[in-house]
């Protein structure tokens, strides 16, 4: 067998690939793209929620939101570290994010207009991420799979705190419930877009499936999300902004309407409501933090000299 055949055989037998193992260049490149994109999403994903930390309605909610945003920073770090095992540097990945070469999940290009949006993000956006990430726990690359296991454990509070926010609003005044409904109306479709294009349109799908980088197809994951989420929304007494959404007893699944793929492409291409703002905020944070990185290095060097002396 050739090295590539041996490699595929390992994957077919369910043996994880580890950093020092042989891997085809395409496998390495695809993983670097996917893991760094995932890392960027965790980091940029802090921005829409960070927008509400100072305006959370109570100390309890503020502490929870801080803890959640802190978790997302940690998720970014686990994933950057996993990508680095493939030979790409942290600096390079961050440079690619800032130049616009690397993408992040387009969901974070939508604005958080009200407090209910924080509930909707936890419930829907983290909910969709969890479904995606549970599948990835079985992916063929060891460091990525292990990062996913850790992340999935931490995610479960994210979704529950979001649902709790909406439950509280829905049990509140008419205005509060309307706020929850408005958030669902705006976040529902972008959440469905998080699973990516239809399987028939997805460019890297086939090879990624063969390599077990993709475990479950986009459409199957999206269906799972809809099936789990619709009853949760009904319990809240909210309605989904999709006239075609209904239970199909024959299929044992919910049917739902078509995603606006023009909007999807438009946001990916950089024209969503907040694309420019998000990148600007990330670049500013990086540049304004430069002196901290330099000072920490200078401090470490000084102590090294002292210890040597």
């Amino acid at each position: 067998m050739t090295p590539d055949e041996l490699f595929q055989d390992r994957i077919d037998r369910g043996i994880k690939i580890e950093p020092k193992d042989y891997m085809p260049e395409g496998y390495r490149k695809t993983l670097i793209r996917q893991i760094s994109q995932h890392a960027h999403s965790e980091v940029v994903g802090q921005l829409p929620e960070g927008n509400w930390i100072t305006r959370a309605p109570s100390l309890r909610r503020k502490a929870i939101l801080l803890a959640k945003v802190q978790d997302e920073a940690g998720h970014g770090l686990y994933l950057y570290s996993a990508a680095e095992t493939l030979g790409v540097s942290r600096e390079q990945m961050i440079a690619d994010l800032h130049s616009g070469k690397a993408k992040y999940s387009s969901i974070f290009n939508y604005p958080t207009l009200t407090w209910a949006d924080i509930g909707a993000i936890g419930w829907l956006v983290d909910g969709a991420a969890i479904i995606n990430q549970i599948a990835l726990c079985r992916c063929s690359y060891g460091p990525y799979a292990r990062a996913m296991v850790r992340i999935c454990k931490e995610e479960s509070f994210h979704q529950r705190q979001g649902y709790e926010i909406l439950l509280t609003l829905c049990r509140g005044t008419k205005e509060q419930k309307a706020m929850a409904q408005d958030a669902l109306n705006r976040w529902w479709w972008p959440s469905l877009m998080m699973f990516g294009p239809h399987d028939s349109e997805s460019t890297h799908s086939e090879q990624s499936t063969k390599w077990k980088i993709k475990i479950v197809s986009n459409d199957a994951l999206r269906q799972k999300f809809v099936d789990q989420t619709v009853p949760q929304g009904e319990y809240l007494g909210l309605t989904f902004p999709d006239p075609k959404l209904r239970w199909n007893a024959a299929r044992g699944h919910y049917d739902f309407g078509e995603i606006d793929w023009d909007e999807f492409k438009n946001v990916i291409q950089g024209n969503g409501p907040c694309n420019r703002d998000r990148l600007r905020a990330r670049i500013a944070a990086h540049e304004q933090g430069a002196w901290v990185r330099e000072a920490a290095l200078a401090y470490a060097k000084k102590h090294e000299k002292r210890a040597a002396a």
Partner: peptide
């Protein structure tokens, strides 16, 4: 920080 755990939240 018990609120880092899923059990902290009330879900019916």
């Amino acid at each position: 920080k018990p609120y880092r755990h899923p059990t902290f939240y009330e879900v019916p």
